[in-house]
């Protein structure tokens, strides 16, 4: 078994680079996830509070992001956006931009579903206590929304991290790129890609464990949260 996975040192470039590459994968997806969370929350708040035209615009944005492949979005962020804006993006920046915009659309829908389960009386109570709209959102509504959407948000994070493998196509040096390069050098596709799949598996397994721990922790700290 060990011999199958190391093949007398032919895979040592993979094991030498796997930690760094995994860090790039994790860093890119967590950055995109938290930026997407902030953007998604803003989109959700605007959609449920502001006037019609804004709502239609956001619906169009969400529909576009959910209706086109992430790969096409990455290619557009890498080839089209920099020339349109006259900016110079590194592949990693373009990748994080595309992942953020993509995940924000999904997250805003997840948060909206959670928001619809928060009782109307909560906001009304906040208003009657004289709170400002911003305070109501920040201290009353958003905490409940985030708490309720923790499981689907975890799901979205795993989908996002899996999607980050596509960054290899715009030449970001992350886990899948490393796998492809080592495969080209060693011509041992089975071993290389199984090892890569195992690495992704471990990362995502840890991510869902952390989320389950958070859920339990919140349930302990706020027993009456639901």
């Amino acid at each position: 078994m060990i011999d199958f996975l190391t093949v007398h040192g032919a895979l040592s470039p993979f094991y030498a680079g796997v930690l760094g590459a995994a860090m790039v994968t994790i860093l890119a997806s967590t950055t995109a996830f938290f930026c997407g969370l902030a953007l998604g929350a803003c989109l959700m708040i605007v959609r449920v509070t502001c006037a019609r035209p804004f709502g239609y615009l956001i619906r169009l944005y969400v529909s576009l992001m959910r209706g086109t492949p992430l790969l096409i979005q990455l290619l557009i962020a890498f080839y089209v956006i920099p020339s349109l804006l006259g900016l110079d993006f590194s592949p990693l920046q373009a990748g994080i931009l595309a992942l953020t915009c993509n995940t924000a659309a999904y997250i805003s829908e997840i948060l909206r579903a959670a928001y619809s389960t928060v009782s109307r009386g909560q906001a009304a109570a906040g208003r009657s206590l004289g709170m400002k709209p911003w305070t109501i959102w920040w201290h009353i509504l958003l905490p409940q929304v985030f708490h309720r959407s923790l499981p689907p948000l975890t799901n979205e994070f795993t989908i996002l991290l899996k999607g980050s493998s596509l960054l290899s196509i715009i030449s970001v040096v992350e886990l899948s790129t490393l796998a492809r390069n080592v495969n080209l050098q060693s011509n041992l596709p089975l071993q290389v890609f199984i090892a890569t799949a195992a690495t992704y598996f471990v990362i995502l397994f840890c991510a869902s464990s952390i989320s389950r721990f958070l859920e339990r922790r919140i349930a302990e700290v706020l027993p009456n949260a639901r």
Partner: peptide, 21 residues
């Protein structure tokens, strides 16, 4: 669990480059 935790790209690489072996 396999499908939920392994990227589609890696599944494709594995079946396109790995299965011939």
């Amino acid at each position: 669990e396999l499908v939920r935790n392994i990227p589609f790209l890696i599944v494709i690489y594995l079946s396109y480059f790995g299965l011939p072996k």
